[in-house]
Amino acid sequence: MRTLLLLLFAVSVQAQTRMTYAVKDTQTLYIDHYKPTVEPNGMSVMFVHGGGFTGGDPANQKPMADGLGKLGYNVYVISYRLYLKGGSFSCNTTTPEKLKAIRLAVEDAADAARFIRDSLNIDKDMFFIAGSSAGAETILQLLYNPFGVANDIKFRGAMVFSGALLDMNTVTPDNWIPALFMHGTKDQLVPFGTAAHHFCKANTLGWMIMFGAKTIFEQAKAWKKPVVLYTYEGKGHEVSNFMFREFEKMDGFMKAVVKGERLRAKEVRL
């Protein structure tokens, strides 16, 4: 009986492999690979963690990786340079410093995506990207890139948990990819619509307008592009952690995209 229990435990625990994808500014950047714990479905997800560009840890994303692994997904959680580590991404940090923190994260995420695409045995036609909070902002800037560092990288779709864009002009009908957004209407850090990040006043050092899920959704809807927005009424920035619980929604979105189902622009209010 003890041997059987140990075997069952081994099957249920998510396997993890850590690999280095780059060394920058003397910092070793790595990817934690979580393999499926059931029959693989062929899909892969690269995930970028949050933490305000000051902190956060890939290891803390294990519950998300476990949940997707139980549905057959390969999950790759990346580390990236935290330019503002020990500091703040709030209103007292200058906008140029904030932009540098975002740019470095985007550069690292682009390199991680290239490593996964070129060095690992994945199906490039079933490669998704996802991110939470600062990670969600990173992946949006990677997909609709104001820095010009990732034009060669293609994903099948994106899942964005409480993220925002720096510039809506970088989004066009031609570069749009299917997207799932989750965002709270009362997010106190990342605007649900269009507003200053952290809702900083215009006379502060860190004033910076950003475009959140609702604004991006409305543009995609006008273009009749595939997009799903889960709007959490009255919820705040805690929605950035909903990748730990909304597995059915994520799974349904990715499977629909891969199957080629026609996804109409849809907002679901919760």
Rank of each mutant, 00 (worst) to 15 (best):
N74E: 13
F115A: 09
K85Q: 14
A22R: 12
L68F: 09
P96A: 12
R117I: 04
Q14H: 02
A15W: 02
T26A: 12
L29D: 09
R117Y: 12
S119D: 07
Y30I: 13
L84G: 06
F53I: 03
M43S: 11
R117A: 13
N74R: 02
A65N: 06
L82A: 04
E97S: 14
V38M: 01
H49Y: 01
A15Y: 05
Y73K: 04
P58G: 14
T95W: 03
G50F: 04
F89S: 14
L99F: 01
I31C: 04
M19V: 15
I31P: 01
A112K: 05
A101G: 04
V75C: 11
G72A: 10
Y76A: 05
E39I: 08
S12L: 12
N41Y: 09
T20I: 14
R117K: 14
I78Y: 03
V13W: 05
T95L: 09
R114P: 04
L120G: 03
A105V: 05
D108H: 09
R114Y: 01
S12E: 04
F47M: 12
C91F: 08
N121P: 00
H49Q: 01
A113I: 04
R114G: 00
V75W: 09
K85T: 06
Y80R: 07
Y83Q: 03
D57T: 09
K35L: 14
D25W: 06
P96E: 06
Y76C: 05
E39Q: 14
N74P: 02
G55P: 06
K85R: 14
C91N: 02
G86F: 08
E97T: 13
A22Q: 10
N60I: 12
T37A: 11
I116A: 10
D108P: 10
D108R: 05
R18Q: 15
G69C: 05
L120F: 08
M43C: 13
K35H: 10
Y80S: 09
A110V: 14
A113F: 06
A10W: 11
G86K: 07
T28R: 15
G51H: 05
Y34P: 02
L84Q: 03
